[in-house]
Structures are given as C-alpha cells and as structure tokens.
C-alpha cells in the first residue's frame, strides 16, 4: 500500500502548490453571490416592455420623495422613492404592474408636458410611507385608462398580489 500513500501525498502536495484556500473561498463566494443575484435580474420586465426608450428631460427639478415633485401631478398612493425604490423603479422584492394608467405632467424646468406612466409596484404589503393623492387629469372609474383609483397590481399575471407603492415613469414628451 506504499504506492497509494505516495500517490496521495504527491497529488495533495501538487494541489496545495497550485491552489490557495483564499482563492477557492473567493471563487466559491463569487459563485454564491452570482447565483443569488441571478433571479433578481428580470424584476423589471414589465417596465422594459412599457417604455424601451424613455425620453429623459434635460432638467428634472424637485425632490422625488415629495408629493409636490412635478411627475407626481396625478399620483395616488405611496411613493416608491420613499419605500426603497425610486420614482421610476420598484423596491427590491416587488414587481412592476404589467398594466397601468398613463397621464401627463408639466415639467416646470423646460416648460414641456411629459407622458407619465404610473406603474404600481406589487408583491409586498402596503409601504405606508409618503402617501400622496394628487388628481390632476384623473378621471372617474368608468374611464379606467385615466383613473388613478384602480389597484393596478390586479392586472398582473399572478392574481391578487398586494399593492406596495407607485412609480411615476417618463414615457416621452407629450407633443
């Protein structure tokens, strides 16, 4: 059995010469992080389909965490920018509503009206921070496409997922 001892010793020493524990830990850690991040990547599928090339205004004045921010002119709900997301993206762990309502808001900086898509973020219970209810251009419920009173999370493929917060995404210039 001496040859087995020699073989085992030799291969172990050669492995030890070629590799380091830290190197293994580093690449194994990277694999774990990568595997954990992978399912998070397609979170904003609805968002990508809604507006592939949004026009970005040259100036975007005001604080997105307030009801007075220009894009919030017809919002009704909790601001995603106060709930771990931004005015155009959902907080982690929530999914953007597939259908939504769309209106226009006036940007005081460049004097133009912009088409704003008020996608809801869904999948967690109500955020309960920064509640705003501004109704410029809002229509009654019998015109669903212009009404902010709907819970747009109900239009998602997974039925009855809870409403968390609302975004105000720019679609383009209203011209």
């Amino acid at each position: 059995m001496k040859w087995l001892d020699r073989f085992t010793e030799g291969s172990t020493r050669s492995l030890a010469r070629r590799s380091s524990r830290r190197g293994f830990l580093g690449s194994f850690g990277a694999l774990l992080v990568g595997a954990a991040a992978l399912p998070l990547l397609p979170v904003a599928r609805g968002a990508e389909r809604q507006a592939a090339h949004p026009a970005v205004p040259s100036s975007d004045p005001g604080d997105p965490g307030t009801c007075e921010y220009w894009r919030h002119c017809a919002i009704d709900g909790f601001l995603c920018s106060c709930c771990g997301g931004t005015q155009s993206s959902c907080p982690p762990g929530t999914e953007m509503s597939a259908v939504t309502w769309i209106g226009t808001c006036h940007n005081p900086a460049d004097g133009k009206d912009y088409v704003i898509s008020y996608n809801d973020c869904c999948g967690k219970s109500q955020c309960n921070r920064c509640f705003c209810n501004r109704n410029e251009g809002d229509s009654p419920l019998y015109q669903p496409g212009q009404s902010n009173d709907y819970n747009w999370c109900s239009g998602n493929s997974s039925a009855n997922i809870p409403y968390h917060c609302s975004t105000a995404r720019i679609v383009g210039v209203a011209e």
């Binding site: 088409v115 898509s117 496409g145 679609v171 209203a174």
Partner: peptide, 27 residues
C-alpha cells in the same frame, strides 16, 4: 391636440404596452 403616437401612449399603451403586444389572456 397630440400626435397619434402620444395618443397611443395616453389611451392604449397602459394596457396594450408600447408595442401593442398586450397581456397574454387578459389584454
């Protein structure tokens, strides 16, 4: 008075999406 593209965005796109694909089984 908006261009037809903006009228599409304001009146149709919320449910039918920017490309008109809609939502499978719903729109």
């Amino acid at each position: 008075a908006y261009t037809p593209r903006v009228n599409y965005q304001l009146q149709c796109m919320g449910c039918h999406h920017g490309d008109g694909a809609g939502e499978n089984g719903r729109v």
